[in-house]
């Protein structure tokens, strides 16, 4: 299956048998997937920004950390476990239950 043979097929899409509609259906699906991936990428950027801010905050908390580089800046990247580390017993909420911020 070569590219010219694929393009030859595209050239022969019959318009009287709903060709544009078929193409539209496939394009709509692919566009939805791409839009979803773009949204995911945006969220990933937000997570990265939050991690940076958190890192800066932790660096500020450590005495004399200004001179030393942060461990995360030098350590190799490790795989991230998908499952949050849930405690054996439910942890006390940081804010009262029912608080919209909880």
């Amino acid at each position: 299956m070569t590219l010219p043979s694929v393009l030859a097929q595209v050239d022969t899409i019959p318009e009287d048998s709903g060709g544009p509609y078929v193409i539209a259906a496939y394009v709509v699906f692919l566009v939805m997937v791409v839009v979803y991936l773009a949204i995911m990428a945006q969220r990933l950027q937000r997570i990265a920004k939050t991690a940076d801010a958190l890192e800066a905050r932790l660096d500020a908390l450590q005495p004399g950390s200004g001179a030393a580089p942060s461990p995360s800046a030098t350590a190799p990247a490790e795989p991230v476990a998908i499952t949050p580390k849930a405690p054996a017993t439910p942890a006390a909420p940081a804010t009262p239950a029912g608080d919209p911020a909880a």
């Binding site: 969220r43 801010a53 998908i82 499952t83 949050p84 911020a101």
Partner: peptide
């Protein structure tokens, strides 16, 4: 993965003693 990473960041924020950087509601 995206959401669980957000949760982990949130937990780290709590441990750091600061306000959450991520909207909660």
């Amino acid at each position: 993965l995206s959401k669980s990473t957000t949760f982990r960041l949130r937990a780290l924020e709590r441990r750091a003693g600061g306000d959450d950087l991520i909207p909660r509601r």
